Every structure is written in C-alpha cells, then in structure tokens.
Simulated scan of single mutants.
Amino acid sequence: MAQIYAEAPAKTVSAGNGIEYAYREVGEGGVPLVLLMHFRGNLDNWDPALVDALAQGRRVIAFDNTGVGGSSGTTPSTVAQMALDAIAFIDALDLAQADILGFSLGSFVAQEIALIRPSLVRRLVLASAAPQGAPGMHGWATWVIDAVGEPAVVPSHVLDVFYTRSAASRSVGEKAMQRMFTRVEFDQPTTWQTRQAQYDAVTAWGIPDVSLLERVTAIQAPVFVAGGDNDPMILPRYSHLLAGLIPHAEIKIYPDAAHGFLFQHHEEFAGDVKDFLDRA
C-alpha cells in the first residue's frame, strides 16, 4: 500500500549551505513536485488529502525552508534568500529538475527560483500569488495580519482568513484542519523569529514598484496561477495581474473560496494540477 502523507516520517538532508533540512515525501514516479509553504507554516500545514491526491503517480516533496519548523538555521527576511535556500535543498536531494508548487509566501519564493535557476523548473504552479512590486501588496490588511500574525496561533482566526464565511466553506475548512493535525509525528512549531522574518519578506516584496512587475515576464516555464475568489490575504486581482504578466500563463479562480482554496477544493485543484503537469 502506498504511503500517505499523514503517516510519512520526517526525514533530514544536509545541504551545501550548511543547513539541515526537514522534509516529508510521498508518491513515486514522474518529475518530482516540490511544495513551498505559506507564512508561518511547517510540514504539518499541508492538507494530507491534497498531498495524497497530488502524489498519485508522482513523487511529492514538502520541506521546511531555512529556520522553519524542523530545519536548522535562521529564517531569512528576504524572498530572494529563501529562494536560494530552497535551491540548496533541491540540490541536496540531487534533483536536476523539478516541478514547483508555491502557496502564498511560497509562491513568491517559487517565482524567484524560476528566475534565478530557470533550468531547474520544468513547470510552475502559483497558488494565492502576487508579483513583486504590485501596488496594494505592502503588507496585509490589519485584521488579516492580526488573525494570522499574533504570537499564539488561534485556529478560528486562521479559518477566518483561509475560508469564506459561508457554512459550506467553513465546514470544509474545519475538516481540513482536522486532517492536518491527525498524525503520530508532528513537526517542530515555527518560531516568532520565523514569523517576523517572513512578514518582513512579505512586506518588502509588496513595496510598490511598477518596474519590478516586468521581472516575471522572464519566467520561461509553463505556469498555472490559481486562487480563491474571496481571498482577503492576496486578492484575486493579483492572480489576474500575475497571469497577465507571465507569458502563456494559465489561470483558474475557485468559487466561494478564500486563501485556503487549494485545501477547500483539494480534489478539483489536485486534478487541475495533474492535468497541467502531465500535459505534453
């Protein structure tokens, strides 16, 4: 029986940058799919149902970047350094090429990886994403950062940001959160240093600078941009902006969904990602 994400043990690998990275992997075959996590998230914050669906017929790898969760080091405060660290992790696994799925902050890092080392990225999935320098992205709305940025993470506040106020969305969100925290072995929690450094990186990424929008036009890999139609953290207009800037990018916006659209619509999203990655 194939291993499922909720039962996958944490592994470690030493990279050339001196960091010991914690990661989990499931599935076999195909070009490996590397997952890049959201603000303050660790290995436990991936919905097992989504990862298992993505791993049908391919190897899927989730990891804690430098200073996050079970990985050593100090979390950097720039997206560019996070991308270099992610490349160091991928190199440590001896992957010559990979597909990349970046979620939220992870989508910023994914864009940088595709720009820094184009030969590494075969296909790119950007979930809840925005390009660097987009006007209005300089930090999140006060109620949003209050909900997800306090020292103690409050699950009900996270639900407010990741799911809409509809009964259907909220119910699915509660089930996804239960799946995330039903496992024998848990990752190390992210620290306050990680929270501060990551939010510094997010706000710096969002300093308005229209000239920086041109950077993503250099992304050579095929790109699938996806988001929720009611995302209060990274508004849907930024998905449209990003998809319009990247040559030949595709876009899909999922209904009655907020920041956690990929968990809420995990079956549909996984199917869409599979179709995109498997396309000739």
Score class of each variant (00 low, 15 high):
P222E: 09
G18L: 03
G206M: 01
M1H: 10
F63C: 03
G27R: 10
P48F: 12
S169F: 03
T191S: 15
D231E: 11
P118Y: 04
V121H: 03
V26N: 05
T78R: 04
A53Q: 12
A201M: 08
Y163L: 01
Y199N: 13
A280F: 05
P189F: 12
V68C: 11
E268Q: 15
Y254F: 13
D52M: 07
F276R: 10
A147W: 04
G73Q: 07
V125Q: 04
P9I: 07
E250C: 01
L262T: 10
I100M: 09
A176L: 08
M177T: 11
S171M: 05
G206V: 05
P255N: 07
A130S: 14
A114W: 02
L101A: 13
V34R: 03
V79W: 10
G260V: 09
S169E: 00
Q220F: 00
S128F: 01
A141R: 15
V153F: 09
G139R: 13
V223I: 05
L120W: 03
D85F: 08
Q196Y: 09
E20R: 14
G70E: 07
D47E: 13
D200C: 09
M137R: 11
D52P: 09
V225R: 01
H266L: 02
R215A: 07
S71A: 08
V13C: 00
I19G: 00
I87R: 04
S171F: 00
V144K: 13
R215L: 04
F63H: 13
P76D: 02
H157Q: 14
G206I: 01
F186H: 15
R237C: 07
R179T: 09
E174H: 03
I145L: 13
S71M: 10
V148G: 05
Y238K: 01
I234F: 08
K274C: 06
V202W: 06
G271I: 04
Q178I: 09
A168P: 12
V68W: 00
H138P: 05
H266C: 11
A15C: 03
Y23K: 02
N42E: 13
F181N: 05
E267G: 11
E20I: 08
V273Q: 09
A221Q: 08
V79P: 02
G149W: 01
Q81G: 03
E112G: 10
Y21L: 02
A96L: 11
P155T: 08
D187K: 06
V31K: 09
T191R: 10
R58N: 03
A249W: 09
L105D: 03
S107K: 05
S72Y: 09
V60I: 02
G106A: 07
L126H: 07
W205E: 01
L36S: 11
I207K: 08
S169K: 01
P255D: 10
G260I: 04
D231I: 06
L159I: 11
V202C: 14
T191M: 09
L245N: 06
M82E: 12
V125I: 14
E28Q: 13
D231V: 07
Q3T: 11
A218L: 08
G41V: 01
L105M: 15
S211P: 00
T190R: 06
H248C: 03
L84T: 13
